[in-house]
Design a protein around this nucleic acid. Structure first.
Lengths: 247, 247
DNA sequence: GTCCTTTATAGTCAAGTTGACTATTAAAGG
DNA sequence: CCTTTAATAGTCAACTTGACTATAAAGGAC
C-alpha cells in the first residue's frame, strides 16, 4: 500500500524500481486477430519483436503513459489513440523479467477497428511498428509472449459478458461484421440467426442507423447498419461455444 | 514495456518509483462482509485505518510481497496466509496518490473463511489489525477507499462466473453457508431451492462429503456437508439478481 | 435477361435454464 | 407433543438456447 510501510521501518527506505507500461493492442483484419508489435532497435532483444510500451514519466499515471507511448512508438493517428479502448490487464513484477534491471510493468489491453494502413504513415518510430497475426507472433522480447497470451484470453472472456466487440468495428457496422469479430477472437463459428437474435434482444448493445442506411460489402443481400448502443455489459452473457461448458 | 524504452532515448534514464502492494482481504462473518484493516502508526494518515500492504523488496514479485506483508502486518497464521486465495486487482498509479513521493501500488484481493479470532494472537504489528465491516470502513488512508470499492465490485462479479465463493467457507460447509456467502457479498436474497439446484447441477462446483456427514448449526434439519470441487468456473454463470438485468 | 451463388433476415421447435412457488422432512425448544 | 427452524424435494410456466429451415435481395456468369 502506498504509505503502508511496515510499522517500524523507515518508509523512505524503499527500493527504487523502474515502472513501465506494455500494450497489447488488437485488431481484427481479414478474419484474423492481429496484435501491434514494434521491432526493437536496441539491446536487449535487439531486432526482436516486442509489445509497444515504455517508461512511465514522473508526473504520469500508467494510463496516460500508455497512450503517450502508443502514439510515440507506433505512429497511430492521434484520434485513434485518443479513442482507443484501453484497459488494464495486470502488472508483471517478476524480479528477473528484464535482464538489465528491476522493471515492473503495468500491462494494458487495447482494441481498435481495422485501420486502412495502421502502423505506416506515422513519423519517426512508426516505421518499426506492424500489425502481426497473433499466431505468427513468436520470439517476443522479455515476457511479452506471456502478456500477449493473457491479453488474448482476457479479450475473449470479455466478449462474453460485455459489449466490447463493437470496439473492433468501425463506427457503423453490420451484424455480419460484428459476428466476424466474435468468430475471429474466439476462433469458433457462431450460428448466424442465433447470433442476430441474441444481439438484437440485448437492449442497448447495438442500435440501428435510422436512415434506411444499408451497405454492401460485395456480394449478397445488403445488410442493415448498426452503431454501438449505450449498454456496456451483456446480461445474460453470450457464451462462447466449447470451452468445456457442455450444454 | 520492460525494455521498451522509446527508441532513441536512453533506456536507463528512467524515473525511479516506489512500488508497493495493497491488500483488500475479505471474509464473511455473521452475515456481513468484513475487510482486514490496519491502524496506521505513522504519518501520513497516522491513526487512520488503511489496507495492509507495504514495499516490494528488491528480489520479490508483487505476489510474494503481498503474502509477506500480510503475514507481517496482520499476524494471520502462516497456514492461512499460505492458503489464502489471492488475486491481482489492478495497479494504482496516479501521481499524487501518496503525498510523500511517487508510489505505484499493485492491489490484490484476498478471500478467507471466517476465522476464530483473525487479527489477534499474532505478534508485533498484529495488534493494529482488525476485521471491519465494509460498511463501516470510512476515512481510509490514501486512495484505499477506491481500492476497497473496486475490490468489492470485483469479488461480487467473480462470484457470478467462478467457484470462488467456497474460498469464504471452511474446508467443509453446508449449502446454506455457501448461500449465505452469496447473499452477503451481493447484499441480496437468493431463493434457496433454486440456489441448491444450480450449485448441485454445476459439475465440480461442490462435492458431497462421503461419510453420512452432517452438521447442525443449531436448530433445524441437519444439512449435508460439501467440499469445494475441482471446477473453477461456472458455465453458465450464476447471475446476481437486480443489477439491471430484467428477466 | 435467367440461373446460380452469396449473404441477410425471418421463423420454427425442442431442450435446457430460471424464477416463483409449494410440499415434506428432521432436528431443537419449550 | 407441538411449534419453530432450516434442509431438501418437487412443480410449473416463462424465458433462453441450439439446431435448423425458409425466404429475400444483391452480384456474376452465361
Amino acid at each position: 500500500m502506498s504509505g503502508g510501510a511496515p510499522q517500524g521501518y523507515d518508509p523512505y527506505a524503499f527500493e527504487p524500481f523502474a515502472v513501465t507500461v506494455d500494450l497489447a493492442v488488437f485488431t481484427v483484419r481479414g478474419g484474423r486477430m492481429h496484435v501491434l508489435l514494434i521491432r526493437r532497435g536496441q539491446e536487449p532483444y535487439e531486432g526482436s519483436w516486442a509489445l509497444p510500451g515504455g517508461f512511465v514519466l514522473p508526473r504520469e499515471s500508467a494510463e496516460t503513459a500508455a497512450r503517450r507511448e502508443l502514439a510515440e512508438e507506433t505512429g497511430l493517428p492521434e484520434a485513434v489513440v485518443a479513442a482507443l479502448h484501453l484497459e488494464q490487464l495486470r502488472t508483471y513484477s517478476e524480479p528477473d523479467r528484464d535482464p538489465r534491471m528491476r522493471v515492473v510493468s503495468v500491462a494494458f489491453t487495447g482494441l481498435v477497428p481495422d485501420l486502412p494502413e495502421p502502423a505506416a504513415g506515422g513519423g519517426g518510430d512508426a516505421a518499426h511498428a506492424r500489425w502481426v497475426p497473433v499466431g505468427e507472433a513468436a520470439g517476443l522480447a522479455f515476457d511479452h509472449a506471456v502478456i500477449l497470451a493473457d491479453a488474448r484470453e482476457r479479450v475473449g472472456a470479455k466478449l462474453e459478458y460485455t459489449c466490447l466487440a463493437t470496439a473492433f468495428c468501425p463506427p457503423e457496422f453490420t451484424l455480419g461484421e460484428l459476428q466476424a469479430v466474435y468468430e475471429t477472437v474466439w476462433d469458433a463459428t457462431v450460428d448466424r440467426p442465433n447470433f442476430r437474435r441474441k444481439v438484437l434482444a440485448t437492449p442497448g448493445f447495438v442500435e440501428a442507423v435510422p436512415g434506411a442506411a444499408r451497405l454492401t460489402g460485395g456480394r449478397g443481400k445488403p445488410a442493415a447498419l448498426y452503431r454501438p448502443g449505450p449498454a456496456t455489459t451483456l446480461h445474460p452473457p453470450l457464451l462462447r461455444p466449447s470451452e468445456g461448458h457442455p450444454r
